[in-house]
């Protein structure tokens, strides 16, 4: 009854450790250090790091900023719901609105150019999930995240919602064109 009863030797902490255990602990420790190193390393050399720039905001303030960009740079509208398609200048601040149940507006971006993408929710929590690039970011009400995005391939991208947001969750799909 050895794991179910007290250790037979009272001073068990002085007993020698099995050799294999020591080798394994050393290997695991090295691997842990490599993994620990990888995260800061990627901040220096990697191209995919989530920005730390975030602000507190309110739905009203955020919506006003989003509306201003839409008013200035809309080039056409799409679908029955008349989604504005916004073509912002390269490098500019663009505001994506998450709300029940849509991502608004549609953006048209240039490939290999950077934009400052702002994300915030007007109501509940949402999940920004860009497909097929498979980039996933949490979107909270009251918080505005600013992330610089650089599309690396042209094409049509969808933004699906991957944080449960009620009965219409599955219909919450937006779009980004990269040309």
């Amino acid at each position: 009854m050895s794991t179910l009863s007290p250790p037979p030797k009272r001073i068990w902490w002085n007993e020698p450790i099995e050799r294999v255990e020591l080798i394994w602990i050393a290997l695991v420790l090295i691997w842990g250090l490599i993994m620990t190193f990888m995260m800061p390393y990627w901040h220096v050399v990697g191209k995919q790091n989530l920005s730390n720039e975030a602000y507190r905001t309110t739905p009203e303030v955020y919506m006003a900023k989003a509306q201003a960009v839409v008013d200035k740079y809309t080039i056409r509208t799409e679908t029955d719901r008349q989604y504005p398609v916004v073509k912002p200048p390269v490098g500019s601040d663009i505001y994506l609105v998450a709300r029940l149940w849509e991502w608004w507006p549609i953006f048209e971006l240039e490939v290999n150019k950077s934009y400052r993408l702002h994300l915030s929710s007007m109501d509940w929590q949402h999940g920004f999930s860009l497909q097929p690039a498979n980039i996933n970011i949490q979107v909270l009400p009251g918080y505005e995240l600013v992330v610089t995005v650089t599309p690396n391939k042209s094409g049509e991208y969808s933004i699906i919602c991957n944080e449960f947001c009620g009965i219409g969750h599955h219909t919450m799909v937006g779009k980004i064109y990269v040309k």
Partner: peptide, 12 residues
């Protein structure tokens, strides 16, 4: 659970 890799996995 890697900070950056989570970007391609979170909530999927």
């Amino acid at each position: 659970g890697v900070e950056q890799i989570n970007l391609i996995i979170h909530n999927t």
